[in-house]
Design a protein around this nucleic acid. Structure first.
Lengths: 329, 329
DNA sequence: CTGAAAGCGCTTACAG
DNA sequence: CTGAAAGCGCTTACAG
């Protein structure tokens, strides 16, 4: 049978209060009494029941992370980094995967916020903020990760999207490229919107032709780049900007198979998950925008624990900067 | 304040028992009463507290997965597949990362088995079975994933390691290769041991020179292939077998950078995580051993839920087969 | 320096 | 067809 705190108390000849205080160092216990308690614990092989404890205290010591796509290495690395931070602070991590499906996100928010976790990290795939907001119980600690909403009611950590895209378009224009194709992720995501907007402004500012046919969208998951590429190549692009990591890898592979020489037949700028294989192989043939994935995860961990401490602190946005790595550096 | 089942009962004018039974459909409740209960729930915005419920029932509806390296896409994909299976069956998934560190594994087993989860999936990095076994509370549901122990006391799901490696060595020998280098993962892992043994037997059976200098070990994580490769290239290998996915990617990149042409200057056989970028690019230049990652995850989920149902069923090993994909197929 | 006891929010025999 | 009440295993004021 299960060994409980009462069994320990009985064997040690003390109260359950004393056992509890001994284990948790939450009030003074004499050396002699401690001794007896620890002996009883050892003899019975007692382990406090985490479930009872968290029920009693209301603290689960667990954070939920709602991720759009675990098998995307960008998120996998982020999960690792979050887990690393949290476990160092005595927290566990529950993972939920939405596969960019808003219904799955909704279900998971409901399930996890109903007493399973102390706080939620969400890389949301939702477009509608009011729908999103209505799912979060009042005062429940939430931090948005990588993707934000126009309405800034939750704290967030994300990556600067505008500047690196703007800059790369200018550089391409400077090289003499005229028709610059753009591939973005899911159109509804804040990250995609910001990147597309940066592209559009840069194209206009550099005096290049503005053509909606030069902008294509994928689904932010695997195997969605190819059809975009076919369409852009038909448009006779002399350069491509790929604003999403997974699609970037696919682009490199596809161009390679089609026999394009990067930097000669076509110029390429890509967002990369920083330790992608492709990046190692081709970093000398394309410009890369390298995201601080680990920093993103660590900051997310930091913010959510802060949030749990002080749920009513004003929400603020934290924006990390990507590294711009031109060809061959 | 928090809305509890008593608040609902009071407002609906029924007992908490009736509210509970209504929510859970666990005994007959008249239509009229149900109506009242649901109205009260809606009015108060009541959500049952998962923590209280799991404390009471002893069922957490949560599985722990102890993973050696989340950022390794092999495991990331497996996590996705496990999560997928579990969430479809009403379970949550807690992730712990060991970074191939036995102490971290030990800590995590202790923490998670102490009332946090109903069962544990473990891809263990431990060598010593008795140490491992001593950490698992008697009768606690455990399933070993990808890596097993010689002593078969826990159920497990893993991938056949012997046959594909044996076969690849024979094929290389058949092509005329004489000095076949072998790179394995962490020497203590069952997967590594089996793969090395297969290599050794095949080398002997094919009448090739047996030379310990042809066998090198990495750490099963990132950036450990290079030094192995330098040593093997010094041994004038005409073929390489890389028995670990991450190291395989690194090998391809390194050989590429060194200017080797695969299949001409050197023959290559690799274990691959099936959707690796590298595989897409080079599958026509090397033999691949493709692991059924998703099936592995799904089976792991299946086995652990079975185990929770019937913890005393005899432990059995489930071995999945890899696909052998020769050059250019 | 320590103990007796209430109570966290549910579920579930037991009883009618 | 439904209710009163015990109890899961802890923690924590309150009291001495």
């Amino acid at each position: 049978m299960k060994v409980t705190i009462s069994d320990v108390a009985r064997l040690a000849g003390v109260s359950t209060a004393t056992v509890s205080h001994t284990i948790n160092s939450t009030r003074y216990v004499s050396g002699e009494t401690k001794e007896k308690v620890y002996r009883a614990i050892a003899e019975l092989g007692y382990t406090p029941d985490a479930s009872a404890r968290s029920f009693r205290t209301g603290k689960k010591k667990t954070i939920g992370f709602i991720v759009p796509d675990i098998s995307n290495k960008f998120f996998a690395t982020m999960i690792e980094s979050v887990e690393n931070y949290l476990s160092a602070h005595g927290y566990h991590l529950i993972i939920a995967n939405t596969k960019e499906n808003p219904e799955r996100e909704e279900t998971n928010i409901r399930l996890l916020s109903a007493g399973l976790v102390d706080g939620l990290l969400i890389a949301s795939t939702m477009e509608d903020f009011s729908r999103f907001e209505s799912l979060i119980p009042a005062g429940f600690p939430v931090v948005l990760v990588d993707r934000t909403f126009d309405t800034k009611r939750f704290p967030s950590v994300s990556v600067s999207n505008f500047q690196p895209i703007y800059r790369s378009v200018c550089r391409l224009a400077g090289k003499g490229d005229k028709r610059i194709g753009m591939i973005g992720g899911l159109p509804r995501l804040s990250s995609t919107k910001e990147r597309i907007a940066a592209y559009q402004e840069a194209v206009a500012d550099c005096g290049l032709p503005q053509d909606d046919l030069l902008i294509r969208y994928g689904n932010s998951m695997e195997n969605s780049a190819q059809s975009c590429l076919d369409e852009l190549l038909e448009q006779k692009c002399d350069a491509l900007v790929v604003a999403q990591g997974l699609m970037a890898s696919e682009t490199v592979i596809y161009l390679h198979k089609k026999g394009f020489k990067l930097g000669e037949d076509i110029d390429l700028v890509t967002f990369v998950d920083y330790d992608s294989d492709i990046n190692y192989l081709y970093s000398n043939q394309m410009d890369c925008i390298i995201q601080p994935v680990e920093k993103l995860g660590e900051t997310a961990g930091e913010l959510i624990l802060q949030r749990i401490e002080t749920p009513d602190a004003p929400a603020f946005e934290q924006v990390l900067t990507s590294t711009y790595q031109p060809c061959g550096m």
